[in-house]
Design a protein around this nucleic acid. Structure first.
Lengths: 186, 186
DNA sequence: GTCTATAAGCAGATAGAC
DNA sequence: GTCTATCTGCTTATAGAC
């Protein structure tokens, strides 16, 4: 793995866990054993450029990941379940946020930096788009499909936050239990 | 309004909007025209003590506010609607997060400071508890009631985040449209 | 209780050698 | 491409006058 990818990988994890401001450049550098000189060679515009690159990388990773899951499962309902199982598993093994969530970054930066806000927006849009398409392909109307996609995205993101505060995976488990019934009700 | 309350009020708004780390002490002080000496007189342990006090104040404010709304409306469904209308209105007039949401603080601090995490946890629990009781009083089973309360809390919090990234109130409006049907389906 | 001045430390960023 | 040393500015926090 080359230096640039290594930095992006390490930084992405830390940003997802602690947000943007809380993570110092030195912390990232120490975690991946790279020096400041190397970082500024790859990201001449500094920390914010690194963050945006991380968000773009995350976007690609999430997209292919979710698309794979949707290909591998027959119904959208099953795929939804699979996604939640994965998130819960990640949270349990890592103890922190790793996965399709970046609320820490959004809430902190959306009102502060416009480029970051746009990168986050693109990410959410992307995720919802994948969900929506899947539901449409299963016969849902366009409106219903995008409504469910929004509800899924929002409730998962919110549940993640609740899990963090409670230090428990219960909120996500409850959402996992409810979503299939809600989808069925549509 | 006394100095201490003024500081708490100003700081709470700023923390809700921008998170914890992004808001400097000087920014708070300037916004409420108070000096550093006064702040450290009222909060000898500094910024984190101030944050926790803010969260406690927020807890009380939210509790009485939601309880009032639940008293003023006949059904939980109507009350839910009223809460969402208020949140949407706040978001539109202020352009930023003000209200029953503090995701910015949670996501940034939950993994970093244990006292802050606990304060946030208490807040969420409180909100969900009020929702749950209302639903139980309307004949829902204990399990259904707390499930709905969780879904409400999570989806509202998540939708708030989507609103921030999109600079739009649409996500909250969609949630407002969906929640009543979901409640009915239970 | 409130003020100003100042300390101490850390952040992000740069310069220049290799 | 990567290294270390260094700069600048800002942050939280303190001291001591009023």
């Amino acid at each position: 793995m080359d230096t640039k990818s290594l930095i992006i990988d390490t930084a992405t994890n830390l940003f997802q866990q602690k947000g943007y401001k809380s993570v110092g450049l030195n912390e990232i550098l120490k975690a991946c054993k790279v020096t400041k000189g190397a970082l500024y060679y790859h990201f001449p515009n500094g920390k914010e450029e690194l963050l945006i690159t991380c968000l773009q990388a995350l976007n690609e990773a999430i997209t292919t990941d979710i698309e794979d899951m949707f290909r591998g499962h027959l119904s959208a309902k099953e795929a939804t379940q699979a996604i939640l199982v994965k998130l819960i598993h990640n949270l349990e093994t890592e103890g922190t946020i790793i996965g399709y969530t970046f609320s820490s970054i959004v809430s902190e930066m959306a009102t502060v930096s416009e480029p970051v806000r746009k990168a986050c927006s693109a990410l959410y849009e992307n995720i919802q788009h994948i969900y929506t398409e899947k539901f449409v392909s299963e016969g849902f109307s366009n409106e219903s499909a995008s409504d469910i996609a929004l509800l899924m995205t929002a409730s998962i993101e919110g549940a993640m936050m609740l899990c963090l505060t409670q230090k428990s995976t219960d909120p996500l488990r409850t959402i996992a239990k409810l979503l299939p019934n809600i989808i069925k009700a549509f």
